[in-house]
Amino acid sequence: MSSRVPVLKTYKLYIGGEFPRSESGRSFDYDDARGRHIANVALASRKDFRNAVVAARSAFPKWAARSGYNRGQILYRVGEMLEGRREQFIAELRQQGAGIAEARREVEQTIDRVVYFAGWADKYQQLFSTVNPVASSHFVFSVPEPTGVVAVIAPQESALLGLVNLLMPVILGGNTAVALASEKKPLSAITFAEVLATSDLPAGVVNILTGSRKELLPHIAGHMDVNAIVYGDEDGAEEKLIQEQASLNLKRVVRPRANPESPYLILDTQEIKTTWHPVGL
């Protein structure tokens, strides 16, 4: 029996379609439940976050302008890529403490959730648009448009599904995102980034950081070029901090809904634009 030495993976950040290390050169030690070293994970700095926002902002106009059909196809492709790496994700979840059945369930739910949301990309507009029967001689319609760059704070306890569930409604609606992965379970987020990078998703549409939430959260919530922040946990102090900082530029602060498949989640990071035009000869 030959004993082959396995090649270990370096977990890096995902910014603008690339996988850089933190500009600060920092990383943190990720150990499994039994204290065995698993990986060194990049410890993103506020400058990494700033760079990610720049990438997300520059990707925004083109992503928002794509047809719902096209966004849906790309997100469906994400589902296909996930399915192909099913075993890898299960193994990685197990490394992060999940039992086999739990890990399998989480990965399968994630794949199905991605496919589910991909299908909304060309439908939510019809659900949330109106033609407004105004009394004057005008044709008036209201349509949802993406709010812009959205920060996503993934829940700590769910390595994969928690992140994907918050991210999908944001990007399917034409927003671009900067996500902060679970600090406790950061590995799946970066592997998910590899899936995104191979799914025709344009660079910068999703950017994923790993690092310290305590350190980054004030900068994320306060950044003036972020339009909304989706916060997936229940920590009252964090929520208060987010709200306070978000008030600097009136970021929309979005909380998860009881139904993780709610289409109203999509509406939460959409703006409604109403257009008036006269009706005449």
Binding site: T130, N132, P133, V134, A135, S136, H138, V140, S142, I272, T274, W276, H277, P278
Partner: peptide, 11 residues
């Protein structure tokens, strides 16, 4: 091609 129009049906 108009401005400052309002209607209760219009968000």
């Amino acid at each position: 091609n108009t401005f400052n129009k309002f209607d209760p049906t219009s968000p």
